[in-house]
Design a binder for these strands. Structure first.
Lengths: 241, 241
DNA sequence: TCAAGAAATTAGGCATTCCTAAATCTCATG
DNA sequence: CATGAGATTTAGGAATGCCTAATTTCTTGA
């Protein structure tokens, strides 16, 4: 903190590095440290490319990385991560709320915009949007100071069968195919679903989405985060469209 | 037009190439073809870097370039140019009108955003902004089809002395120092100025900006484009702030 | 315990895009 | 028409960031 940069987005941080930090940070939310393979798969790169870059990120102090043991974001890396995610998710909010784009395909566009967004624009974009705390997929948006709003929702698969829940978050928002799958079945943030069954054989999950049956595998279902809905007789709640 | 891309922003056009095309296109508005030196100066690069890239842009069919004779955008290059400028200036409008940024420093930010903006976002951003025809510096914004609105204004220096004019365009909006110079003297789009004098000795231009005298050299003054104001007695017109 | 097999790294290359230094071309002018 | 200044290109090299192929390390089950 001597003559160092105060805003990670401004200084000598290459756009490629930001992308790596973003992916590593997101993967680390699932399990840490992150191996080379998941990063390579996520970024559609060959493993040696990732291996090499991890070394360079470690040199820059953005990650800690002992060979054969995966990578974790350093303190500096986590600060950059929060900043990148903030930019990313603010753009997602802009793209959906103001440009009318659909939540299931804004990830890629936000990804492209985030790396060209310097701090003055980030700050003003935040104000313009009303400093939202959650992105269109329900994930938290770090504040300008790097603090995270609480994560919302509990895993749908851990909830008792038979009750109704409102979807408040869909994880792994960078998996476009998964989001499209859900989008086409009207499963999105705010949707009220009733958990009908989790098949003991292969784990297939059956939902009722405002009267329509929807089935999905555990891989998809495990990404849904919900809050319980208080059951009211005679009114199945009114947030379907 | 066989299996080619229809939108230049999407396909195999590198962001670096877009920047070169943008600079070449802008410089070509002053005089064509454009030499290696002005490009290098504008992009803050060494001349061999430009020379080499011009060869590569020529290979890609974006410019025509015979050695020692400067470069001009090809048809394909002009299409890309219009598209890049469209994205650039739409972002400038967004940054000033919606994020409240000042017209004199949005160029750089728009420059960073433009290269990450794919067609769906460009189209929706255009609609969101009401498909404006002019950027905050008064330059025309090409439409989605690549057609340009007419250029506005006439050179201030070609106007008769003593009359009032409204500034409708400031050229070379990528020259931040020049824009700041003007900004600090309240000379901007919409400002009404009276042309007081053009010194025959060194060409220094004297203006009256709502009662305040403002002097500037020809290099700056030659970038101002104005429309005449019909003189009305007893009302010096009311657009100063 | 030990040998697949999976995961990760090293080795060696390539494309992009920049640089400095040196050579070359153009053009105005004496 | 020769020449020197200035513009431009060529030559040679470096950093980034990706690749394939080969090697090394880790893990796990027989």
């Amino acid at each position: 903190m001597t003559t160092e940069t105060s805003h990670p987005s401004v200084a000598a941080v290459r756009s490629t590095e930001e992308q790596y930090v973003e992916v590593i940070g997101l993967l680390e939310e699932q399990n840490s440290p992150v191996g080379t393979a998941p990063i390579a798969e996520n970024m559609q790169l060959a493993m040696p490319s990732v291996s090499e870059m991890l070394k360079r990120l470690a040199d820059k102090g953005l990650v800690t990385h002992a060979p054969y043991e995966g990578a974790s974001l350093s303190e500096k890396g986590r600060m950059l991560f929060a900043n990148v995610i903030r930019r990313h998710r603010l753009w997602e909010v802009f793209l959906t709320q103001h440009l009318g784009m659909s939540w299931h395909n804004v990830y890629e566009h936000a990804c492209r915009l985030e790396h060209g967004t310097l701090e003055p624009v980030t700050a003003r974009l935040g104000s313009f949007l009303g400093n939202p705390e959650y992105c269109p997929h329900g994930s938290p948006i770090p504040g300008a100071d790097g603090t995270w709003p609480p994560s919302q929702g509990q895993p749908l698969l851990e909830m008792p069968i038979g009750s109704e829940y409102q979807i408040v978050r869909i994880l792994q928002e960078n998996d476009a195919d998964c989001l499209t799958f859900l989008f086409e079945r009207d499963v999105m943030i705010g949707t009220v679903v009733r958990l009908m069954d989790i098949a003991s054989y292969d784990g297939t999950v059956s939902l009722d989405v405002s009267g329509k049956p929807v089935a999905m595998g555990t891989r998809v279902a495990s990404r849904l985060r919900v809050t319980p809905i208080v059951e009211m007789r005679g009114n199945a709640s009114g947030e379907s469209t």
